[in-house]
Amino acid sequence: MHPRFDLPAHGLPLPVIRQIPISQPLVWLKKGWEDVRANPLPSLAYGLLFALGGDLIILALLNHPHLLSVAVSGFFLVAPLLAAGLYELSRSRALGEKLLFIDSLRCFSRNGQSLAFFGLIVSLLVLFWERVSAVAFALVAIDTPGQASAYLSDILLSGEHLAFTLAWLAAGGMLALFVFALSVVAVPMILDHDTDVATAMLTSLRVCTHNAGPLALWAFLLVDLTLFGFATLLFGLVLIMPILGHASWHAYRDLVE
């Protein structure tokens, strides 16, 4: 038998982490789809906001290619926070409640200080990545035209700057992996309990170390499905993001006691 809580070095209780089978992320996707079917209008409303917001950002940044590439990669960093309303819908459904879209927004006022602090941390990481990318691209893209398509073709896809491209993708992947490890259950935990940011992020890190295989599969599914949504001019995100958001709530419920 496991104790209800583990005690970390600073003396505050941390929840017990469950071990899950490697195939469990597929179950989360199934449960996410069931939540979408149970709450179609508010769930798809969030998906539509993701898609339209993303399209507007892309249109605004077409003549600022490095910002466009940062915006796409930064999407993966901020998505756990943006999906908080979807977590609230899943949480309420588990309690036997059915919320409207406007009702689900109440989650941002519950433990809002911790959510805001987590958002600040993620924002600082996105800003750091933007500055690193700006400097890196400036070193190789001095004469590149302003259009994003030409920029991506000449810099990222031509093969002429293969070492730079691989280094940039590797750095971005490492940052995304770090944020994933910090946030995989952090926001759902903040919403579900009166939890401070440090406890939520430390719990996320422990979740990743206890379930490295299943969460590697979960990260792979998150990236691939989200990229598929981007490939459809973001309109695939209308359905994909609600499924992933709801599934992330079930991931938290399975992983944390």
Rank of each mutant, 00 (worst) to 15 (best):
W218L: 05
L89H: 09
A134W: 10
L59G: 05
L86V: 01
M201P: 01
D6I: 10
E34P: 00
Y87F: 12
V207C: 12
L157G: 07
P40I: 01
H193G: 08
I142R: 14
H66M: 14
Y46F: 08
L82H: 08
P25W: 07
A200F: 00
A219Q: 04
A83V: 03
H246P: 08
L177N: 11
Y87G: 05
L125A: 13
F235N: 07
G172I: 09
S90Y: 00
S133R: 15
A163S: 04
L77P: 06
I142M: 15
A148C: 02
T226W: 12
F230P: 15
H2K: 10
V126Y: 14
T165G: 03
A94W: 01
Y151P: 11
A231P: 01
I17Y: 05
Y87K: 04
L191V: 04
R4G: 02
L127R: 14
W28E: 00
V126A: 14
R4A: 13
L59H: 04
D154E: 13
T232D: 02
G54C: 06
S114N: 09
V140R: 08
F101K: 06
T144G: 10
A176E: 10
I121M: 14
L169H: 11
P15T: 04
A134M: 13
G119F: 00
F76M: 09
W28L: 00
V187W: 03
Q147W: 15
V179T: 13
L177E: 01
L177M: 10
L41K: 13
L205A: 12
I121T: 09
A136H: 09
D192K: 05
V207P: 04
G47V: 09
V197A: 06
V16T: 09
L225C: 03
T165F: 10
S23C: 00
L156H: 14
S114I: 02
C107Q: 12
Y46I: 03
G173Q: 11
H161F: 15
A216T: 12
V126Q: 13
S123W: 09
L237V: 01
D55L: 15
S149R: 11
P42D: 10
G146R: 13
T199Y: 12
T209H: 08
D194V: 03
F76V: 03
I57L: 13
L68H: 14
L152T: 11
G54L: 12
F235Y: 11
L67K: 08
L157W: 10
A200T: 03
V207Y: 07
L29F: 06
L124K: 06
S109L: 14
L152Y: 09
L162H: 12
I142F: 15
W168A: 14
L100W: 04
A9G: 01
L29A: 01
A181T: 06
A163L: 13
S90H: 00
R37Q: 05
L127F: 13
V207R: 05
W28V: 00
G229W: 12
P214T: 06
A38L: 07
P242K: 02
S92I: 05
L115D: 01
A231C: 10
P65H: 13
V238H: 02
L44H: 01
A216M: 11
L234K: 00
V132I: 15
S204L: 07
D224A: 13
L68N: 14
L215F: 02
A38V: 03
L255D: 06
